[in-house]
């Protein structure tokens, strides 16, 4: 998606592109900055809810960054946090209502976790750290970048949990039937919550092995 946009709009300068892509790896909100793990890991049992969740978070991060950035010079500093919360909460409510109206089955699976996007530290973190100081367009791009960086981890975790846990991807069986006849079994453990944490631990391990600069002292 980003490549087609890049050709049309001059706003995608080199600096802005870096804003967009750095959260994918070096500044990944989950594995490097430890933000926003709370609300969404429980939706990684299957790919579909994880993708919808990733999309919702991206939309909320991007638009709240945009709105806060537009308003940044008018917001009285003393009620800054409340204003940010109100903007984020309204966007989340809108996303929740839209999900309920158009993708009802997924919204049932996400249950309370849509509401928990509000307390997702990524959003508040980006608003405080970036959108309050920068112009609307870079803020918007920064929001999209962080949303995607976050969503990537969700989708990767969901990929492994769905594949190993129920032998499916996006609800379709991908493990050949002959495997089961040979004695292969789905690992029910992967569906249980603790395995999401362990999967992330392993992702961090892989990422840091390839990227030595991230290793903690």
């Amino acid at each position: 998606m980003s490549t087609t946009k890049k050709d049309k709009e001059p706003v995608f300068s080199l600096k802005n592109m870096r804003l967009l892509t750095s959260p994918f790896n070096l500044n990944n909100p989950i594995t490097v900055l430890v933000l926003g793990i709370c609300s969404a890991l429980a939706v990684t049992v299957q790919m579909k809810p994880a993708i919808i969740m990733a999309l919702s978070v991206t939309i909320v991060t991007a638009f709240s960054s945009l709105i806060i950035s537009v308003l940044r010079n008018t917001i009285p500093p003393s009620i800054r946090i409340i204003v940010q919360l109100i903007v984020v909460a309204s966007l989340v409510i809108i996303v929740d209502q839209v999900l309920k109206a158009y993708v009802y089955d997924v919204s049932k699976k996400l249950s309370i976790f849509v509401g928990l996007i509000i307390t997702n530290c990524i959003i508040m973190g980006r608003l405080e750290a970036f959108a309050m100081q920068n112009k609307p367009i870079p803020s918007f791009i920064d929001g999209i970048g962080n949303g995607i960086g976050y969503g990537m981890i969700l989708v990767v975790v969901a990929f492994f949990r769905e594949l190993l846990g129920s032998g499916k991807l996006l609800g379709m069986s991908v493990i050949p039937h002959s495997f089961y006849e040979m004695g292969y079994r789905d690992n029910g453990m992967m569906i249980l919550p603790p395995m999401a944490l362990i999967t992330i631990g392993v992702i961090i391990w892989v990422q840091r092995s390839r990227n030595k600069s991230l290793i903690e002292k």
């Binding site: 395995m195 944490l197 990422q207 092995s209």
Partner: peptide, 16 residues
Amino acid sequence: PLQGLGIAFIITGLMG
């Protein structure tokens, strides 16, 4: 590469 955050996640998983 597992020190710090990585092992924290894995321990939490095992405790879970």
